[in-house]
Design a protein around this nucleic acid. Sequence first.
DNA 1: ACAAAAGTGTTCCCGCTACACCCATGT
DNA 2: ACATGGGTGTAGCGGGAACACTTTTGT
Lengths: 233, 233
Amino acid sequence: MNQKINYTYRYPRPAVTTDCVVYRFDREELQVLLIQRANEPFRGKWAFPGGFLEMEETTRQGALRELSEETGIVPDYLEQFYTFSAIDRDPRERVISVAYIGLVNGVKEPFPGDDAAKARWYPISKLPSLAFDHAQLFEFSLRYLKQQIHFHPICFILLGKEFTLRDLQKLYESILGKEFDKRNFCRKINGWGILKPAEMKSVEKNSCRKGRLFTFDEKKYFSIKEEGFRIEF
Amino acid sequence: MNQKINYTYRYPRPAVTTDCVVYRFDREELQVLLIQRANEPFRGKWAFPGGFLEMEETTRQGALRELSEETGIVPDYLEQFYTFSAIDRDPRERVISVAYIGLVNGVKEPFPGDDAAKARWYPISKLPSLAFDHAQLFEFSLRYLKQQIHFHPICFILLGKEFTLRDLQKLYESILGKEFDKRNFCRKINGWGILKPAEMKSVEKNSCRKGRLFTFDEKKYFSIKEEGFRIEF
DNA sequence: ACAAAAGTGTTCCCGCTACACCCATGT
DNA sequence: ACATGGGTGTAGCGGGAACACTTTTGT
């Protein structure tokens, strides 16, 4: 397996990697998935999962593969957000990284593997010091999220099947970094008409209520999106 | 100069290129800058300017260099919008391209050079058939423009120092692909308070009036942007 | 019992929309 | 003279913002 073949080119080439900033929302705050590096460089430091691109995969496929190898996580949404190419961003050699943002709903826990000694979710307000230029990677990813929230149903992907209006509001507040009035928020969302009440099992109806549960009406969303609807906030 | 050095790596690497979709606005319609390829592959076909990344430059620098070499154009704004990595996007070999969007104000004309046999501006409604996956590149760039118009003063960069309200309206209509009511448009823009009347030389005051000239009040724009202002449309 | 969070309406205001006519210029 | 494009105001409506108290549940 430890093949000794070398690859030779007429001109020098940078190495190409992919990195993933994966978000989840635990009904209180936004969190991102970090791994603790098992190898040099930056051994022991926390970083976003990622690694070298293979020749027979797109960057998207590479990002999914590395994410899966290092954490076992399969995201519910994955989109490219920026390519980092600063000349000294990797101490070993010239490396260009295509960075992806991932969204996960629910409470999946990671299993560290490969280059990851550990893997865990960190609240975005309490990130540790990060390897490489990953602090910048994080900043860019959050800015991208703040923008895309207007064009994609990001929040509904993060919330998963059922959620309360409070969950949704907390999530908007986490991403946009400001607070809203409960009633106005509620009316605004309802005005869009893209939520339907979730069906409840009769058990739930009486028992411990955390608020009414809703579901994202995907069909309705895509139909009004066709007509130019945007999730303005 | 024709050095015979080769570069050898332990694992195979894709080649990395940059491409630029540069826009200008001639007061009637949006145009993009295309070159006619002087070399294989796709010799004779139209394409966006671009080429291989060098080791001592960032992708941004590479994009600027290639653009300058092939067309002599220096954009007034340049931002990355997507990285294309489909496996067969270049018939020669595996090539990943980091694509940039450029904006130019005024009427600069290109000078073809390097890999470009010709270089010219094409109205976006009349693009010729394009080399590589550049049709997709174009689509992505336009989608990006449509989004970024809400977060950056794209339009004011394209218009340059002085412009009429009619120019601005035509530009918004070109990018967003829909038409607006003249008076409502005017009131909306004025409401932002980021336009100031341009000073006129006394000659202009009486002579052939094409409408009042305005200037983008950059200082004002950045100050209200700080407070969370967005250019909603 | 107390604290924490859910649920619920009204008023005011601003910005968006729709709409038509006159004037100046250039041909 | 005619055509083209510039310039201007109003009325109605809908959505956004500000605002407080009661009820339920969990501790």
